[in-house]
Amino acid sequence: MNSISASPLLQFSSISKQFGGLSALSDVSLHIRRGEIYGLIGPNGAGKTTLFNVITGLYQASAGEFQFNGKNYQSCKPHVLARAGIARTFQNIRLFANLSALENVMIGRHVRTKTGVIGALLRNRAARHEERAIAERARELLDYVGITKPHQTLARHLSYGEQRRLEIARALATDPLLLALDEPAAGMNATETESLKTLLQTIRASGITVLLIEHDVKLIMVLCDRVAVLDYGKKIAEGIPDEVRRKPAVIAAYLGGSDD
């Protein structure tokens, strides 16, 4: 193993994020190892989604360093981070609602393909070949996440659980190194959650690192290799789930003001 693959996939050093006078993240340091499922929990408003948005480039950190795959990514646009290998889903599903399920996933292939205007107009061999490969890969991914409806169904006509899965398929289409999921089990029933669990395990087994924000602590505990707990924008604990669960600060944070 060379040094790059031994180093953590993602390294956060003293990241802070302020909105006006409000401190959403203060001095958060953490790292995510290659191939693990890393969980991020914390009460509502603890800064989980903010952290997520910093990782995926939607927000720029106010201070601190952020390394991914051995490179620095200070203040990068989301599309740059997607190209670098970070793919995400959204807490309140953001699919391309009026496009078909298949097209949604095909759009995920955008960043790994290159046909431009000329190729589109001439539709030469390279372009046709690439287009076929895109559609093929997209269909594979739809099957992979278990969407059985016709692939032409508009995204907004899929059931809630299917929409969540479609978001995952779309994210996987970008060939990510890190798949970041923002509350993927929110609003799912027990059966759906169970099959999500299986899916995430399969994804991890395929070599993709997973970052998971979840409210469902039980799911986090069975699924994650390591967990970090945020409260009021600070990291109050990190470690393997069983240890973290017993820490007094964590218990206090959860009893202090949350629905769990």
């Binding site: 995926t56 480039g57 939607l58 646009k77 989301p78 599309h79 997607a82 190209r83 793919a87 995400r88 959204f90 953001r94 699919l95 391309f96 609602a97 009026n98 496009l99 759009i107 995920g108 955008h110 960043v111 790994r112 779309r170 994210a171 289409a173 970008t174």
Partner: peptide, 11 residues
Amino acid sequence: EDEIAASAMGI
């Protein structure tokens, strides 16, 4: 459809 989601997909 969704500019933020599009840029998160690498566009």
